[in-house]
Design a protein around this nucleic acid. Sequence first.
DNA 1: TATTTCACATAAGTTGTAATTATGCCACAG
DNA 2: CTGTGGCATAATTACAACTTATGTGAAATA
Lengths: 296, 296
Amino acid sequence: MISNLEYFKVFYYTAKYGSVTRAAGELMISQPAVSQSLKQLEKSLGVTLLERSSRGVKLTGEGQLLYSYVEKGYEQIESGVEKVRQMQNMELGEVHIGASDMTLRFYLLPFLEKFHEEYPGIKVIVTNAPTPETLELLQSGKIDFGVVSTPFEKEKDITAFEVREIEDVFVAGRRFISYKNKMLDFQELEKLPMIFLENNTSTRSYMDEYLAQEGVILRPEFELATSDMIVQFALRNLGVGCVVRDFAAEYLESGMLFELRFNRMIPKRAFSVVRSSRQTLPEAAKRLLEIMEIEL
Amino acid sequence: MISNLEYFKVFYYTAKYGSVTRAAGELMISQPAVSQSLKQLEKSLGVTLLERSSRGVKLTGEGQLLYSYVEKGYEQIESGVEKVRQMQNMELGEVHIGASDMTLRFYLLPFLEKFHEEYPGIKVIVTNAPTPETLELLQSGKIDFGVVSTPFEKEKDITAFEVREIEDVFVAGRRFISYKNKMLDFQELEKLPMIFLENNTSTRSYMDEYLAQEGVILRPEFELATSDMIVQFALRNLGVGCVVRDFAAEYLESGMLFELRFNRMIPKRAFSVVRSSRQTLPEAAKRLLEIMEIEL
DNA sequence: TATTTCACATAAGTTGTAATTATGCCACAG
DNA sequence: CTGTGGCATAATTACAACTTATGTGAAATA
């Protein structure tokens, strides 16, 4: 361990300017203070670092050797301080976010755009993963916060904040036009060719569970990886798709798809911002949540 | 300028061990002292560097960023201290010496050999130059000390210390055997083919001046670059060579060369160690001079 | 669920040390 | 030969860092 780092700072400035008086000026202390510090340093190292003369100081061999190291070391620390300052000023930094396709596309994207515009120095790193995996990333500290869709198993020290509602809907194209505006029973779905998301998604397991509870067991014709693809399949009349409404919104409006209606409401779900309550957020993450109007 | 470098040392150890208590142990101060220093550092930077918990501390994003710099910087300074220590222990260092061929060969060499054996870590850098140039090197601080042959112009703040006598002699081979044991006059040299060193050496200019003062002007047959070569020429009976006795010693003893004797003594010269009185010597140079039994 | 333990924070009081002022010394320049 | 600039030294002051004692919270343990 180095005895007194302050001495090295004094030495750094003295060597840099070749003058005790000048160093004192830079350090904003008196000249004798510098002289004494240098003396202390030399004493503690047991070596003469500077040749004193009436027109300044000059490094000895040992002094030169030491200075070559101290110079690099001190400036390294100095630039570390500068980097932290930049981070504080949001000129530098990273925000790690976990989000699913869905939350990213229909909720997060505009905020990220705005954030990036305001703070171009901050890297935004989005890890695209389904809800349970996102929660794991949060627990392990790999992301600052996540945006997931309900429902999910909320473990303790996870703070959740719902930001908007989403609805799961069944949509179909003209081949199934006879079902339009009819009040249907969920049972009737069993007779129709269904297009669903794959099993590993929260949307799928939510629907599976809900329908099972209603006594309906579906065996989808198609199991696709993305909601977009489901919409495309539905448009081509390959079956009845189950997606969050936002994915189909455009086509529902234009009439190319219609929404099936049921005699029972599918309980609404929500997008939820989740974060670890035991971890303080980096400034950049805080600022992004502010933009998203999430109270911390 | 960084406000208090000591804080960074505390931060370094705390971050390194992820524990305030552990850092306190390493720093050999109390735990609250560390806590307070960290608090001060955070306050001065206006940023939280550590997440405190009941089982240690963890770096925040800012802390990690800072640590990556402080780690390098601190260790850089630490290794600088280590290097200086090595230099003190003579495990590391350089000695810069200025010397002529002659002084190197007939005086310095055995000391250098001994020195190098004792301190293999020290680089010995010999700058081979004639006397006036060596003195210049000394003035400009490019060498720690020099070994030259007298006479020379001793400027102030040069300390000289004569270490042994040398004699200039005239030597010849059997072709000139008739001159052996005769007491000669310097004038007689004018009739003989002479072998001398080139003009730019102190030996040559010394002899030129001395002989001129005796009313003798020589026009050597041969002007050679090295004394060794003069001896070789003399051995082959190409003329009478003028060298410092040491160069011919071997052949004088074996009888292959003999020394011409004169009715007047050529004043003896000397090897002299010269150093700048206004400059403290590096430890390594001091030690070498000690080995050479020069008092400082 | 209560209890102990561990790690860090806080508070108050006491050094200890690093700063200041004042002065001295030396070398060089005018 | 004196003035100036630059560093060292001495003595005093003042601040800051350290210590002891205690508090707090979380996690492990009973």
